[in-house]
């Protein structure tokens, strides 16, 4: 039975409507309180089996999903396929067949290839939650970022948010971009052009070449992690220069015309894309993001689990 509000799967924010996104955020709000209880568990998903299928190592996201599943009383199985000797593609199609045979209710998948979550969703009847597919989308991260921003700013319509850093290789950036735009926010990106998609100008966002200009404009910065491999890939010359030119530092923020909300999906490279005193500063909501991550994932799992809305 497909969810009446979300359909069968959650694969990305590009395909969700503003109403669907608001509904997930509205559901996550009250769920946050469950994590404050002595018994941090409700029986909502009792009897459901959820497989966490992580082809890429990602401790944070996996743990966040696991907490969400356990707090809703689902039975969970973790499958880590990273480091398997079988090539990625073969593993995926075989895994799909095996999962189908095991009659599980939901799969949370993290995979290094863009489109992998959809690939799986098209081939199994179980519901699929995308926990990050290649450089495509990471919808629950996008949603938790939206929730964190909404907690601070209220309605996001007309709010100015800048995504900073390696947008080219970032699934977080894409999910944020679609989610923010759907809720009516103004979205900008800032980073070296070698780390922005060439077609960024056609994606309906502002582009800042200098971080100073982004800081002057934005009400919130979502600072992406800079993968250290990008240096070897020839995209940037050095981490030191990256920090010099694009790093979000105290000095730069001090010159901003307003207080700016600082977000980071983690894990951070302190001293590269973000300085420690910014990450730990008064306007950082990085830990709220972590808290909200569990609530958002509970909301997504809960909403996907059900059938028709609003019973008697």
């Amino acid at each position: 039975m497909n969810s009446p509000v979300l359909g069968k799967d959650l694969l990305g924010l590009e395909t969700l409507s503003a109403e669907q996104i608001r509904l997930i955020l509205d559901t996550a709000g009250p769920l946050k309180e469950i994590s404050e209880r002595t018994i941090k568990k409700v029986p909502a998903l009792r009897g459901m089996t959820i497989v966490n299928l992580f082809f890429e190592a990602s401790t944070r996201t996996r743990i966040s999903f696991e907490f969400a599943e356990k707090r809703l009383s689902a039975d969970t199985v973790n499958v880590g396929a990273a480091g398997s000797s079988v090539s990625k593609g073969e593993t995926l199609v075989d895994t799909a067949r095996n999962l189908e045979a095991m009659r599980i209710d939901m799969v949370v998948i993290r995979h290094g290839a863009s489109g992998a979550a959809k690939f799986l969703a098209d081939r199994i009847e179980s519901k699929v939650v995308n926990a990050g597919d290649g450089t495509h989308e990471h919808p629950t991260q996008g949603l938790l970022d939206l929730l964190t921003l909404r907690d601070r700013l209220g309605d996001l319509a007309g709010r100015r948010v800048c995504i900073c850093g390696d947008v080219l290789h970032s699934r977080v950036a894409r999910s944020n971009l679609w989610g923010l735009k759907k809720l009516g926010a103004e979205v900008a990106v800032c980073g070296p052009r070698s780390l922005l998609p060439n077609a960024i100008d056609e994606m309906g966002v502002k582009v800042f070449d200098r971080i100073e200009a982004a800081i002057e404009w934005a009400e919130a910065l979502n600072i992406l992690r800079l993968q250290l491999e990008r240096m070897q890939g020839g995209y940037i010359p050095s981490l030191r220069e990256y920090n010099r030119v694009f790093g979000v530092t105290r000095e730069r923020l001090d010159r901003a015309p307003r207080d700016i909300i600082i977000m980071h999906p983690g894990p951070m490279n302190r001293g590269v894309e973000i300085d420690s005193d910014v990450a730990d500063g008064p306007h950082s909501v990085i830990l709220d993001q972590v808290t909200n991550g569990v609530a958002i994932r509970m909301a997504v799992l809960y909403l996907l689990a059900g059938g028709r809305p609003e019973g008697g």
Binding site: S114, D133, E137, N198, A199, I200
Partner: peptide, 15 residues
């Protein structure tokens, strides 16, 4: 192809 579709789908483009 490198373009707006590759940017959206998160696939590496060939210019």
């Amino acid at each position: 192809n490198e373009g707006v579709v590759s940017a959206r789908l998160g696939l590496k483009g060939i210019p």
